[in-house]
Amino acid sequence: MKKIILLAAFGVAGLVSANGTTSKKIERVILKKEIKAKKPLRLCGVSVVYYDSAGNIKDVKFLTSDQPTLETCQNWQRNQVAAIQQAGYSISQL
């Protein structure tokens, strides 16, 4: 998502430098509206630590996703925890 906005900004910057002042104003307004229309994404994550039967750390994984709101982030996290439980692992949340 961020890459698309970045590419659009570079594309508009190239067009703006090639066109007259009237088209510059129009394209700036269009770009501002496109940026305001899209909600910013926030990084959401879950840290998973796998232990062996002796209690030693076996593996550590960080699962991340871009989410627009806190509610969608929490839903995503709950889904990740459920998927780990369905895979047969027990969960201990800190």
Rank of each mutant, 00 (worst) to 15 (best):
I4F: 12
I4Y: 12
I5T: 12
L7W: 13
A8V: 11
A8G: 07
A8T: 10
F10H: 02
F10M: 09
F10N: 02
G11S: 05
G11Y: 02
V12A: 11
L15G: 15
V16A: 14
S17C: 03
A18P: 03
N19Y: 06
G20W: 05
T21S: 10
T21H: 10
T22Y: 11
K24E: 13
K24R: 15
I26G: 05
E27H: 10
E27L: 15
R28E: 10
V29R: 13
V29W: 14
I30M: 12
I30R: 11
K33S: 13
E34C: 08
I35P: 02
I35F: 11
I35Y: 07
K36V: 04
K36H: 03
K38P: 04
K38H: 13
P40C: 01
R42L: 05
C44S: 03
G45T: 07
S47T: 15
V48S: 07
V48T: 08
Y50N: 04
Y51C: 00
Y51P: 02
Y51V: 01
Y51M: 06
Y51F: 14
D52R: 03
D52S: 04
D52I: 00
S53L: 08
A54Y: 12
G55H: 11
I57H: 01
D59T: 12
D59C: 02
V60W: 03
K61E: 15
L63D: 09
D66N: 08
T69F: 06
T69S: 15
E71A: 06
T72H: 06
C73E: 04
C73A: 03
Q74G: 00
Q74H: 06
W76M: 01
Q77L: 04
R78E: 11
R78V: 05
N79A: 07
V81Y: 03
V81L: 10
A82P: 01
A83E: 10
Q85C: 02
Q86S: 06
Q86N: 14
Q86E: 05
G88A: 07
G88T: 13
S90P: 00
S90D: 12
